[in-house]
Write a protein that binds this DNA or RNA. Structure first.
Lengths: 198, 198
DNA sequence: TCATACCTACCTACTGATAGGTTATGGTCA
DNA sequence: TGACCATAACCTATCAGTAGGTAGGTATGA
């Protein structure tokens, strides 16, 4: 048995299809050829599509949460941490025109099985909570300057970056994402920090 | 006989399904019961689903473009025009948990027929172009203050508002959209930002 | 010998789409 | 006027293909 078992392989392929086509636009049949086993065998690993969707969402949430920990360990300042976060999503976009799993499933939200919906809501919550903390600490440290609460700005940041992925893909211009991310973070940097950057 | 013909009625119902479920998550069968005619009859009005999707996208784009003209006629200042724009999307969200047609189709982009893709790209372009003009004029008039080009900020604004719709719906909290919109526009009018530019 | 992991074969329901028939309306012309 | 015809707008019936899912059998290795 490999380090990457069949179940993991199924998750990898299915996740890519979720990120490019969306939850309702891929089927077990699509997985068949790419994974190399029959649809019935995929049902052995993931009895229902809801199970598969939930597994994808859970794994992705864990992955992103691990990135949060990584960024906090590696980067000391809030602006750097935000840049890392924006860079993570950018790499998703660049690697095969993909969309963040959370953002894509959010767009399919009304049609998702309940357990997947719950996972999506939790994903958004995790992202916003982490962003809010980074923003709060950054402002306290004088690295960031902004009006309003960290919570509101966290939602705004998350919404903007997720939305920018859709816009970038629909216009065939990945630069749109990058410029949006740069504008947002640049605007948050305090005059002192911004001045040093020039 | 009626003021609203059958074709219009089909478009109304189909558009609602696009806005709530997405392009791939509704079928002619879904329209049957709600419109009150058989799927075959719907094919009479819209031969293919691509035709239907294109008609929905085109009509919505025209609708939004007409709103642009309306806001320019009714409102004199840039902040007011931006507030109107944000309010338009908010009313879409509030009225039946809907998503902007452009944003929803952008999320389905990779699976759309070519003609619908083209329409989606054009919708984004129209929105960004109008926003960029409002921002440019607003800055020239001293009503707004921001770093960077109007074009970049237009993309950011559009991305953020569209993304905020998804986030609001997935968290069951429409207030998230409103607060995001208010933060964005508020930041553009902020004296602090204006002072920083000098 | 027993669980794991795969298979073939099949199911029901639905997908977008087509063929061809029915009905109502309204215009043309001997 | 009335016979005729065209068209619009619907219908039933059907298509081939796909959806997610199930039943039950088989190979393999501990």
């Amino acid at each position: 048995m490999q380090v990457t078992g069949t179940a993991t392989q199924i998750l990898d392929v299915a996740q890519e299809l979720v990120q490019t086509r969306g939850y309702n636009a891929f089927s077990y049949k699509d997985l068949e050829a790419r994974v190399g086993i029959r649809t019935a065998s995929i049902h052995y690993h993931f009895p229902t599509k809801a199970d598969l969707g939930t597994a994808i969402a859970k794994r992705y949430r864990d992955f992103v949460n691990s990135k949060f920990a990584e960024y906090e360990a590696k980067e000391v300042t809030a602006p750097k941490r935000l840049q890392r976060y924006a860079g993570l999503l950018e790499s998703v976009l660049t690697k095969g025109n993909r969309i963040c799993v959370g953002g894509m499933l959010a767009s399919d939200y009304a049609t998702l099985p309940l357990e997947v919906q719950t996972e999506v809501s939790a994903f958004i919550h995790d992202n916003e909570r982490w962003l809010a903390r980074v923003l709060k600490e950054g402002r306290a440290a004088g690295e960031l300057a902004f009006d309003g609460t960290p919570e509101v700005l966290a939602t705004t940041l998350f919404s903007a970056l997720e939305g920018a992925m859709f816009v970038a893909r629909s216009t065939g211009d990945h630069g749109r994402y990058r410029r949006t991310a740069e504008w947002l973070i640049g605007t948050l940097m305090s005059p002192r920090v911004a001045a040093r950057r020039r």
